[in-house]
Amino acid sequence: MFGYVRPAMDRLTEEEQGDYGALYCGLCHALGRRYGPVSRWILNYDFTFLAALLSGGLETEERRCIASPLRPKRAAAGDPALDLAADLSVILTGYKLRDEVLDASFFKAQGCRAAGAALGGAFRRACQARPRFADHTRQEMDRLLRLEQARCPTLDEPADTFASLLAGVAGEVEDPVQRRVFSQLFYHLGRWIYLVDALDDLKKDAGEGQYNPILLRYDLAGGELTPEARRDVVITLDASIRQMAAAFELWDFGRWSGVIRAAVYEGLYRVGNGVLEGTFHASPRRRQRRGKKEHI
């Protein structure tokens, strides 16, 4: 369910690109510091975007790391939002792995179980650090599981679970106006992620007989969208992005405004389009490995 949230790079100034890179490094360091080196592998685009939404500012320091042992790199530091983003990332990943163990084939489930065990200590500590968000996440994931088991044939009901889950992030900010704006923005971010993920898995789920709300909503047997279904899915995805943009304009995201603007006015549409046309792959890791082999 992760890997879909990306700003449109070519909409960012060079400075913004550099800042976003520093934020990525800063979040990686925050994960390492709080949860040990193993937790760093959970880092992805979505969590960096989460950090941008929560942060507002940027203070940096030059740091070496395992990825750049010789040349120190500019990394975000000293921002409580990084710690918050790190905690939420660990909690979300922990529940995602648990969900996949229940969902996946036997061998894949073993992999997820092992990954979950590796993250186990970090997951427990993150849940202790943010008990409200952890409880909320568990409740919403349980609700999603029940809807999946009942093979719920609507889009909005299962999407509401993941959307509400992310909207729970808003509970971690103090300012009441900020909380309202964040709640709306994160709700639609979660809704969009859930539906784009379902769209991405359409053919796979149709083949494996897995639950997929889009298959059931439009009664698609073979995993191919009919023109009407395609039109309606696009309408609902676009409408969620518009709601995010409308919320975005009501809060000052400071230093990260450019990055977030590039996502809610373009990046998400592009990702949605790529998923719709079958040209997007959520996991560049896998592609990279394959690509490297081919390259060699």
Binding site: A8, M9, C25, A67, E266, R270, V271, N273, G274
Partner: peptide, 30 residues
């Protein structure tokens, strides 16, 4: 750009990718 119409632009050309962000690791920008 819309979900239904990417305006002919290439997807990967413009999207932020974590291997760009962490450009020193794992052969990144490839």
């Amino acid at each position: 750009v819309f979900t239904s119409d990417c305006g002919g632009g290439s997807l990967c050309g413009g999207l932020m990718c974590s291997y760009c962000l962490c450009n020193s690791c794992m052969g990144g920008t490839f």
